[in-house]
Design a protein around this nucleic acid. Structure first.
Lengths: 255, 255
DNA sequence: TCAAAAGTGTTGACAATACACCCATGC
DNA sequence: GCATGGGTGTATTGTCAACACTTTTGA
């Protein structure tokens, strides 16, 4: 990606001063890059979001994870590192939500942050998370007070998650390698804070052909629920097929 | 948005060196910010994309618009400015697609660019575009050779446009203040490179209630087509309602 | 009066919803 | 044998797609 800066300069030079369609502004911005991650998981039958205890400026308030981008890493790598360091889990689903400008604190201290949404399989930490004492998973209805304007970002991430999961088989990212239909049921109920008819939901989910029934059963209930796993030849988190997974789509607005 | 840098530092200080979930990387990235715009309009019954003639490095190739972000403007302002300066049109629809890392050319010259998609009403330049000689609108099937890896970005923008327009009343952004049903027909045909049944399309469009029929007619055809305008109390480009506007949604993949 | 383009309705197929009972097992 | 939770089928409704003719008017 060897584009940008020279292109602008050179293109600008070929125009008279006031007419160049892409002439640069007076002074170029140099900014500090940060990455912030809104991390979700599914734990104890609830959708949860990862938050960290406040720093010394605002001890009582919480925040989602964020970190500055290193000099020699891409923002995607940063997000991956941030998730791994804060949860011990290798994130399989990371998606950019938006990039926004922070305040200019002093000359040269302008901060631009790229917001990611991360879906984690909470069942499989690759390393111990003992080190991450200050991070906690909260259900959405029990979230603590957040710092600054973070609440808005969290809300838009939840909205985006609901929107996207209604159209694409996305929530499997939150489940372990193998899972049961009742688990899926609880997952969708929790994400949409609703009671979705289990017959219709399982019909929709199974009709996608994305699930493979395994002979094993989860014996924690009396009858035992069959385990399913993803059909990896059909399922690709990079290019999710468009499948209507929820009724009443009209209740959502686009991102 | 007074969060980021201090938060990280302080939070980091409260952890032992190897365990902080959000500890900063060794050295922070300071980057040059650029904005690139994939601008679409609807002209002569075709969807068109705005491209500029190559600079001295690659004279024969074309590029979409891009510019560095000024020291005292937000990326959104930059995109707005870029569009206005290159087309004379005030863009009503600007949406972030993604942010991506460029190469590190030399220490301190790392470039990060934010990609926008812009939908323009080509009928209403606020100022003359005579000054913008090197910019041209191309139909998608007649696009010239693009620089570098820009083709991929263009393709993903077109894909995103198709995806989003299939679910939301988005393409009105490309139309003038008042427009006719045949114009809408041509617009959708062109965007999807298909022949969409006009009876079904007009039914879908009109059933949204977003259009208001005016008494005037476009007299350029024999019978004359009625002009419609948007119902501004219902239509809001910031929060587009989810309305299925196209059949065969399954032919698209998610953004 | 003819040609060109606008405008409009119906039907059949499929998909989505609502809804309730049987089954397997552990205790 | 009973309580718990898993698993399944159907009837109805609504939605979507396919399809062709009539209307208007300018030339």
């Amino acid at each position: 990606m060897e584009l940008i800066e020279h292109g602008v300069t050179n293109l600008a030079n070929s125009y008279p001063d006031n007419s160049c369609p892409v002439r640069p502004h007076k002074r170029k911005a140099r900014v500090l890059l940060t990455v912030e991650c809104l991390a979700f998981c599914f734990q104890d039958d609830f959708l949860k979001i990862l938050l960290f205890k406040g720093d010394c400026k605002e001890l009582s308030k919480w925040s989602f994870a964020y970190v500055t981008v290193g000099e020699s890493e891409s923002p995607d790598d940063t997000a991956q590192r941030l998730m791994y360091n804060s949860t011990g889990i290798s994130t399989t689903f990371l998606e950019q939500l938006h990039t926004r400008d922070g305040v200019i604190k002093s000359p040269g201290e302008r901060v631009v942050s790229i917001t990611f949404i991360a879906l984690l399989d909470a069942s499989r930490p690759d390393k111990s998370v003992d080190a991450c004492l200050e991070g906690h998973w909260f259900t959405l209805d029990k979230m603590p007070k957040l710092r600054h304007d973070q609440r808005e970002t969290v809300n838009s991430a939840i909205n985006h998650l609901r929107y996207k999961a209604a159209l694409h088989p996305l929530l499997f990212e939150l489940l372990p390698e193998r899972f049961t239909l009742p688990q899926i049921q609880n997952l969708y109920d929790s994400v949409y804070n609703a009671h979705i008819d289990k017959r219709n939901l399982s019909k929709r989910i199974l009709s996608t052909g994305l699930l493979i029934k395994t002979p094993e059963k989860d014996k924690s209930s009396k009858k035992g629920a069959s385990y399913y796993c993803l059909n990896k030849t059909l399922y690709n988190p990079r290019s999710l097929s468009l499948i209507k997974l929820l009724p009443n789509l009209h209740t959502f607005t686009g991102r």
